[in-house]
Design a protein around this nucleic acid. Sequence first.
DNA 1: TAATAATCGAGACGGTACGTCACGTCTTGGA
DNA 2: TCCAAGACGTGACGTACCGTCTCGATTATTA
Lengths: 217, 217, 217, 217
Amino acid sequence: MTDLANAETNSVTRPRVGRPRSVESRRAIIQSAMTILQTDGYAALNIEAIAAKAGVSKQTIYRWWNSAAFIVLEALLADMPAQESIAPDTGTLKSDLLELVRPTVRALSQRRGPVFKALIAEAQADARFAEAFRTSLMSAHREMVRAVVGRAKLRGEVVFDVDEELAADMIFGPILFRLLNGHAPLDETFAFGLVDTTVAAMRFVETGMRRAAEAAE
Amino acid sequence: MTDLANAETNSVTRPRVGRPRSVESRRAIIQSAMTILQTDGYAALNIEAIAAKAGVSKQTIYRWWNSAAFIVLEALLADMPAQESIAPDTGTLKSDLLELVRPTVRALSQRRGPVFKALIAEAQADARFAEAFRTSLMSAHREMVRAVVGRAKLRGEVVFDVDEELAADMIFGPILFRLLNGHAPLDETFAFGLVDTTVAAMRFVETGMRRAAEAAE
Amino acid sequence: MTDLANAETNSVTRPRVGRPRSVESRRAIIQSAMTILQTDGYAALNIEAIAAKAGVSKQTIYRWWNSAAFIVLEALLADMPAQESIAPDTGTLKSDLLELVRPTVRALSQRRGPVFKALIAEAQADARFAEAFRTSLMSAHREMVRAVVGRAKLRGEVVFDVDEELAADMIFGPILFRLLNGHAPLDETFAFGLVDTTVAAMRFVETGMRRAAEAAE
Amino acid sequence: MTDLANAETNSVTRPRVGRPRSVESRRAIIQSAMTILQTDGYAALNIEAIAAKAGVSKQTIYRWWNSAAFIVLEALLADMPAQESIAPDTGTLKSDLLELVRPTVRALSQRRGPVFKALIAEAQADARFAEAFRTSLMSAHREMVRAVVGRAKLRGEVVFDVDEELAADMIFGPILFRLLNGHAPLDETFAFGLVDTTVAAMRFVETGMRRAAEAAE
DNA sequence: TAATAATCGAGACGGTACGTCACGTCTTGGA
DNA sequence: TCCAAGACGTGACGTACCGTCTCGATTATTA
């Protein structure tokens, strides 16, 4: 389980006395937040609005979440299908990456785009949320690239010392850039181009270590 | 000259009647904004604080800028040395890109990082600012990559149908990703790895057009 | 109790839920308003100044009052001694009216004058306040004249069909006129003259009904 | 001519050099003020709105008037027919007063009411305007009552020592009271009642001087 | 069964900043 | 000297949310 809410929430030693947390309120809060998000956009998403729509007191929200962004992140994680978390393994780096990149690009170019942009923006002003965002949504995506590239390395499909961290940056960086800067569309052409380019890079990059190895020959 | 302020400001046909704009107020506003930014951070940067520090009325600020972000952007553009706007031309793609990437990475990992993050965040919530940001700061940087890659193409250093737009994404996307997500440092190692990888990609990528050309042989 | 504040405040059926209104804030607001009024005058009385002096948020003031004038009116009503609300009953119309008029004239020529002028001015620009002012402070004063004249009528001291409403106008109209227009002093001479004249009028006025009665003889 | 505008305007020794005052601007300003007054009410009457509507600079308005109220007062005085300034002389006090009171009451209950209320309110916050208002509009009205009552005194229609100042207060005070407080209508019934009552008062009042005279017998 | 304790809704509270309005003053070029 | 245009500093407006704080009521565990 992810660690999005206030610290005390997840305290293992929390005494189980007193009235238990209302699952109904929790559901209504998340539901209301997502409805506001889709109806009026992230700019209209604030604690007062969520509380009013959910028929819940502001205190209850603040008790379990630090900000509206945390609620959205929790909803997003809950909404993410389980299979999305498993890295594809089709046999080739290129098709693996396409399996990863195409759905991501498609989702971000449609419904998920505005939310994702808003959460990243939020993270720039809120270190706690940045941490939560990075270690949940983002790390899951990055991990899949690392796994795919790692397997390609074992197959000898890419140079042996390719940096998997950098590979993840090369995949998600451009996507994020187009999403946030909006200078060009997030479409299929882009997805194919991005994967082709990255695969070529992974196969032929001359890293410092490689150059050192060749020099030693 | 950049086009950051309200539309009417830059109207070419604007008649020269009425009291002229106070250059002193303009200077004080920009100066105060940058001081607050460096002292207390972007979160503390608001119109009231700028007006108070600059000894200026809020109305005067609103007359010429739409938000504090526009002031910062204007200051950044004014601060940007002229030579930064000229793409390097050292003879090889790799050294050209290094000339571009290393100073950028260095600046973003130090003083410029927080400001840049804040402006990108701001752009996600303000379409007008996003437009201004994209067409000034961002397009200038992207243009340099396009120029450098274009020259490499003419030299035959990279495949003839490489997409310069995508090249710019491959360079700045990962930088932006690390800056915004903070999962890994923006250091020299990253700069070299990014350039090496991108150069390899540009040289060996098999694009659709290239594959078609080869198939025709 | 008077009905000066927002409508919902005095709702009888208001449920006793939520944090109760802070009596301390209420007291501080009224106190601060009166202090500003006496120190700097009505022109300096604004919501921001009251809030600052009372150590209270503007929102709290707006929650319970519509404007600074309402606060002053509430303070005035609270400050009004109970016995002032009871019409004098000395046995003759003249001495009753003197009991009413002299303290009023004295108060208005001194401390109360500026406040009263300001509230009447306020009422001309704010229909809600005009209503509150008329039905609280003003109607109380008018009612006393009506009561005094009514008793004089029963005693046969004045003509039987004298209009008590008009009588109240004849008493307070000239006082108000001198207060607002400032063409002549509000002094004892004026008070005696006003009462003498009004008593004479009440005793000898030939109203339409009276003329009709005489004509029937 | 009245003395409403800034002091320098009426300076006798004013040098006649430079561009002369624009009669067209003056007309447009007064016209615009009255239009705004009738269209949107006194609350909407401000210097910026007048200047904009009149196609005039704010400076020009401030050069000749101290506030919007002065403009309105000037317009009102210019609009007042000459014959209104001559006290009626019909032979009896009652019909003289009716000639005075009925048109006044009628005008105030219709078009003139809101403007008059607003000007009186304005006078409470602006001593200079209060002075101008009192010595122009108000004194003219009061003077007519004084003249009418003075003639009645000479005819022996009223007691010889009746106070003409007080008489004027007794007439205009109640009118003003009803206008400002709005507790009862300004109608014909009120006008007749007011005049009847005042006439009775003037005929039968026992003033201090009269009582002293009687006591000497 | 009662005491204890945490949660809930409602909503008032102090606080910060917003973006706007109108004020009265000023600085241009032109009449 | 006046005029229009319009920028300027000043001050207050009324609103939006923030995150916190009482309330009384509710719902569990613990004694």
